[in-house]
Amino acid sequence: MIRALGLLLCLLPLGAQAEEVVLGLSRDQVAITATFEGDDILVFGAVRREAPVPEGPALEVIVTVAGPDRPVIVRKKDRRLGIWVNTEAIEVDSAPSFYAVTTTGPLNEILRRTEDLRHRISIPRAIRSVGAPAEIADPAAFTRALIRIRRGEQLYQSLEGAVDLERDTLFRTEVDLPANLTEGDYEIRIFLTRGGRVVDNYTTTIPVQKVGLERWLYTLAHERPLIYGLMSLALAIGAGWAASAAFRAFRA
């Protein structure tokens, strides 16, 4: 019994608990104000160990930041009677509105495919598409298009080598959030890998939300739409009148 326990203790450092993530964030929320131009989150932390640094493959760090998942319709244009029309469409069941992967090295070298499948780390894995209608020949092209378009808008980013790892212990990375963010809880995940295997992971969330005037207008528009609509009209009429009066005074 004691021998078995001793064996277990010997094995333990090789298991999942050998190296643990201790995380810090530069902020506890992202506030969308009237002059919001995008923001950046500094993700930093340390690797805690009970034992000395294990031998073998080097420690690698992967940090992902994911916005709320939403269904997306991807439409494809085709030429019909000489004009370009939307023809085929696929509904992607759930795709993050924002997704960034930053790593210490090339993702395909520091992460095995099976681990990627399990933890949904790379961008294509973060998108969930259950089934496409049978008449669509190449459904994968639609997912690729989704990634291509969102990459172009800086909504999907993969920054290989952007995580700084010092003395196998301290790591830090910065993720730039673009201005066109969807509100919600953003999930930050940190994975430690050795030889392509995930040895520890840690998950936390950071809320991204509108504040102040932005919050007030958004709430009013959704909860009191008639009042909001009338307010918009009053503003329009008022501005129209003010400009007219100002010009008359100016000419007089």
Partner: peptide, 14 residues
């Protein structure tokens, strides 16, 4: 409508 668009795909909210 007549010229081939550079991006054939477009995204919409599901």
């Amino acid at each position: 409508l007549l010229i081939q668009p550079s991006e054939l795909y477009s995204l919409g909210a599901g």
